[in-house]
């Protein structure tokens, strides 16, 4: 594992919600990402986990430069790419080096493009390839296990797994260093999921790619990822080596997550943890209250008065909790 490929520093994104109140009062802000510091090394696979609405997708869109951050920097290969507006990033020299595989393979393919058109487009636009790309497209299709006779087909003529392969081939077409995978298998049949995951693992091995892997499925993250980052309501609550985090989760939220893995309770003392209480609102959250307070089984008055910061009690394993032993 060599140098740092991607680093986000204090990355935040807020969305205005509702109407601006009369009298010049600022509109309410939904905090989708708050002060996120994330690091991906070259060739490393980092898993991003957390429940729905915790800001994973926002973070992924910020890093893939589809969305502009409210605050903070995104440093990719020692260049601050966060300052380039998303609308202009298509022409940026690093565009081809960060690519993404989308969650929904159907929605993410242009219905009027054949599979070959879809795969060839980034080659033309991002690598300046000219002329007939049939050979290059065929080679890439072969690498993702897409039969050459399917290349002339349109998305509605392909199965879910085939569409997922087209999406992966498109993401690889510009020869990226970092591949962002936004729940790449969640829209697929269970039987196809495993095949696509094996394909992703093989492609990473063969091409030395770094992955930022977003998933609900903790078992998948444990198998595929070197490190794991746990998010809760827009903030990182724990990060560390995958094996370490799954074996010895330090944050109460991570402990609850890990205890909920089917067949995974044996690893953990205390058995399955059931969370009660309501998720706090992400709209204008109190900066002095822990985001997990109210649902946390360890919650104490201090959690309602002071936001716990991310500390690193063990080198490489960070956690944001007052009660970390």
């Amino acid at each position: 594992m060599s140098g740092v490929l991607l680093e986000t520093v204090g990355l935040s994104r807020r969305f205005a919600v509702g109407r601006r109140a009369a009298g010049g009062k600022r509109a309410s802000m939904l905090h989708a990402g708050d002060d996120v510091n994330l690091r991906v090394h070259a060739g490393e696979s980092v898993g991003l986990v957390g429940e729905s609405g915790c800001g994973k997708s926002t973070l992924v869109r910020l890093v893939s430069r589809l969305l502009d951050p409210s605050e903070g920097a995104i440093v990719f290969r020692e260049r601050d790419i966060g300052a380039v507006p998303a609308a202009q990033f298509a022409a940026h020299p690093e565009r081809g080096k960060i690519q993404m595989v989308f969650q929904d393979p159907t929605d993410s393919l242009n219905p009027r493009y054949s599979a070959a058109d879809t795969i060839a487009e980034p080659m033309r636009l991002l690598r300046g390839a000219r002329g007939d790309l049939a050979i290059a497209v065929r080679a890439l299709a072969d690498a993702v296990g897409l039969a050459p006779e399917l290349l002339a087909r349109f998305p509605h003529q392909l199965s879910g797994g085939q569409k997922a392969r087209v999406g992966i081939a498109r993401a690889l077409a510009s020869e990226p260093d970092l591949l962002i995978l936004d729940e790449p298998t969640s829209a697929l049949d269970v039987s196809v999921q495993a095949i696509i995951l094996q394909l992703l693992a093989r492609l990473r091995r063969e091409r030395g790619l770094a992955y930022l892997f977003v998933s609900h499925d903790l078992n998948v993250v444990r198998l595929l990822c070197d490190r794991v980052v746990v998010m809760y309501l827009g903030r990182v609550v724990e990060s560390g080596p995958a094996a370490e985090v799954f074996a010895h989760p330090r944050h109460p939220y991570t402990r609850a997550l890990v205890s909920a893995i089917p067949g995974g309770t044996a690893n953990l003392a205390g058995g399955r943890i059931r969370l009660s209480g309501e998720v706090r609102s992400p709209i204008d959250p109190d900066p002095a209250v822990c985001r997990f307070y109210g649902r946390c089984m360890q919650g104490a008055p201090r959690c309602g008065a002071e936001m716990p910061l991310l500390r690193e009690p063990v080198a490489g394993h960070a956690v944001a909790c007052h009660f970390d032993r």
């Binding site: 893939s64 589809l66 929904d104 929605d107 487009e121 980034p122 636009l125 993401a171």
Partner: peptide, 14 residues
């Protein structure tokens, strides 16, 4: 739509 976001990633301008 997803395919428009994907098109941005593939290097398409507005």
């Amino acid at each position: 739509a997803g395919f428009v976001e994907a098109a941005r990633l593939a290097g398409n301008g507005d």
